[in-house]
Amino acid sequence: NKFNKELQWATWEILNLPNLNEEQVKAFIDSLRDDPSQSANLLAEAKKLNDAQA
């Protein structure tokens, strides 16, 4: 389904953001699992944090 694909994509993207530490990655992945419908928003937040920590 749509959420499953978005969840998989967001998870992959977050795992590959180079500037997030392990705790941050875990927190984003946990949030994705808690509410897959928020995957686009969570991915945007993760990318923003990744850029800020570059």
Score class of each variant (00 low, 15 high):
Ala27Ile: 11
Ala44Gly: 06
Pro36Ser: 06
Asp35His: 08
Asp34Leu: 11
Gln53Asn: 08
Asn4Leu: 11
Leu15His: 07
Asp34Trp: 12
Ala46Leu: 02
Glu45Tyr: 15
Val25Lys: 14
Leu17Val: 00
Ala27Glu: 07
Glu6Asp: 09
Lys26Pro: 00
Leu15Phe: 07
Ala27Ser: 13
Ile14Trp: 01
Pro36Arg: 02
Lys2Trp: 15
Ser39Gly: 05
Ala40Asn: 08
Lys2Met: 13
Leu17Pro: 00
Asp35Asn: 11
Ala44Asn: 09
Ile29Thr: 05
Trp12Ser: 05
Ala46Met: 02
Pro18Tyr: 11
Glu6Tyr: 14
Trp12Met: 06
Ala10Pro: 01
Leu42His: 04
Ala10Gln: 03
Asn50Trp: 01
Thr11Asn: 03
Asp35Thr: 08
Gln53Met: 13
Ala40Ser: 10
Thr11Ile: 13
Gln8Asn: 03
Ser39Trp: 15
Asn21Arg: 11
Trp9Thr: 05
Asn16Pro: 00
Lys47Arg: 13
Asn19Asp: 04
Leu32Gly: 01
Leu7Arg: 02
Asp34Lys: 15
Pro36His: 04
Asn50Ser: 11
Leu42Asn: 02
Pro18Trp: 08
Leu7Val: 13
Asn21His: 08
Asp35Met: 08
Asp30Ile: 13
Leu49Gln: 06
Ile14Lys: 01
Asp51Ala: 12
Asp35Trp: 06
Glu22Tyr: 12
Glu22Thr: 10
Gln38Ala: 05
Pro18Thr: 10
Ala54Arg: 05
Trp12Asn: 04
Lys48Trp: 09
Ala52Met: 12
Glu13Leu: 12
Ala52Ser: 08
Thr11His: 03
Ser37Ile: 05
Ser37Glu: 05
Phe28Ala: 02
Pro18Ser: 09
Leu17Tyr: 05
Gln24Ile: 03
Asn19Trp: 08
Arg33Gly: 07
Asn21Asp: 07
Lys47Leu: 09
Ala10His: 04
Glu6Arg: 03
Trp12His: 04
Thr11Ala: 06
Ile29Ser: 03
Ala44Thr: 10
Lys47Phe: 13
Asn19Pro: 00
Trp9Phe: 10
Trp9Arg: 12
Gln38Arg: 11
Asp34Pro: 02
Phe3Gln: 14
Ala44Ser: 10
Ala54Thr: 10
Asn21Leu: 08
Lys2Tyr: 08
Asn1Arg: 02
Lys48Ile: 11
Ala52Phe: 10
Leu17Ala: 01
Lys47Trp: 14
Ser39Ile: 15
Asn21Thr: 12
Glu45Ala: 14
Leu49Ser: 03
Asn4Pro: 13
Ala27Gly: 10
Lys47Asp: 02
Leu7His: 04
Lys5Pro: 14
Asp30Arg: 15
Pro36Asn: 03
Glu6Gly: 03
Phe3Lys: 11
Lys47Gln: 06
Pro18Glu: 09
Leu43Asn: 01
Ile29Arg: 03
Leu15Gly: 06
Gln24Ser: 02
Ala10Asp: 02
Leu43Val: 15
Leu32Asn: 00
Lys5Asp: 15
Ala27Asn: 09
Gln38Trp: 05
Leu7Asn: 02
Leu15Ala: 06
Ser31Asp: 08
Ala40Glu: 07
Ala54Leu: 09
Leu43Thr: 05
Asn50Pro: 00
Gln24Asp: 03
Leu15Arg: 13
Glu22Trp: 14
Leu20Glu: 00
Glu13Phe: 14
Glu22Arg: 13
Leu17Gln: 03
Gln38Phe: 05
Trp12Gln: 06
Asn19Arg: 04
Leu17Gly: 00
Glu22Asn: 12
Trp12Leu: 04
Lys48Gly: 06
Arg33Lys: 13
Ala52Gln: 10
Glu13Ser: 12
Leu49Ala: 06
Ala52Asp: 10
Glu6His: 09
Ser31Leu: 12
Asp34Met: 14
Asp34His: 12
